[in-house]
Design a protein around this nucleic acid. Structure first.
Length: 249
RNA sequence: UACCGUUGCCG
């Protein structure tokens, strides 16, 4: 059983999730680990309804989901835009585990944020005893995506006062907001912040900066940023080419 | 053994 559990993950990497599912059903017996592994693999690879079905099956057979299992199923709900199931899981977690932890809490924040229920996302956020960089970024991302850029920035500034630092993903998220809403003044302030912290040399952050300058027609800054970057990936190249082509002279 | 957030283009 132990060997099979390790093989489930290996199978999904080598042959795809379907192969892992087949292996799973060929196993003579299952335990919480096998179930949880399959559920997280399924939700990670976009097989959301498969993940939900397996969760029900697992539950009916009397196995105990842990917070990572719950987080995986919530992620599945997020991908399926299945708010009913998500709320149901929320209630069930509170019933079974009495409180949210970092995994379930962040998964719920992400779910509400992606579905545009920013107030609910905020309530979950506030109910957590501890916030990590993912909690903050998920909430910020929701506000960016649903047009509350000023609220996103307010959160970002609040976060800088918290005992943890925004990472590359947090900064890229806010920069993405500046791009969408053409908030160039704000974007340039953020650019200054990234230079100060050295974050501008990180590929994700640099990519977001290239895109932002390209979008507002500042090809020169876009190119400069591109040239400054020590590590360029496929996104850097696409972003700079897009910037150049959309501002052709 | 597995959890959650991000940046370009195309679909």
């Amino acid at each position: 059983l132990f060997c099979c559990n390790s093989m489930l993950y290996g199978y999904s990497v080598l042959y795809g999730v379907e192969a892992a599912v087949n292996l799973f059903y060929q196993m003579p017996e299952h335990d919480d680990v096998s179930w949880s592994t399959m559920i997280s693999l399924s939700s990670q690879h976009g097989y959301g309804s498969k993940a939900l079905n397996m969760f029900v099956e697992m539950w009916n057979q009397g196995f105990m989901p842990n917070s990572m299992t719950y987080a995986s199923v919530i992620r599945a709900c997020t991908g399926l835009y299945d708010l009913d199931w998500g709320c149901h899981l929320y209630a069930r977690i509170l019933r079974m585990q009495s409180s949210l932890d970092a995994y379930t809490g962040n998964a719920l924040i992400d779910m509400y944020a992606k579905l545009g229920l920013l107030d609910s996302a905020r309530r979950v956020f506030d109910s957590l005893t501890e916030h990590n960089v993912v909690s903050w970024t998920s909430l910020i991302s929701g506000n960016v995506q649903f047009g509350c850029i000023e609220q996103a920035v307010a959160l970002f500034n609040q976060m800088k006062k918290a005992p943890l630092f925004p990472d590359a993903i947090t900064v890229s998220t806010v920069l993405g907001g500046c791009t969408s809403y053409k908030e160039i003044t704000l974007g340039m302030q953020l650019h200054g912040y990234t230079v100060k912290t050295g974050a501008d040399s990180l590929t994700t952050v640099g990519n977001a900066l290239i895109t932002m300058y390209g979008k507002v027609g500042d090809v020169c800054s876009a190119e400069t940023q591109f040239d400054l970057m020590p590590i360029k990936d496929i996104i850097s190249w696409t972003a700079v080419i897009t910037a150049l082509s959309q501002n052709s002279d």
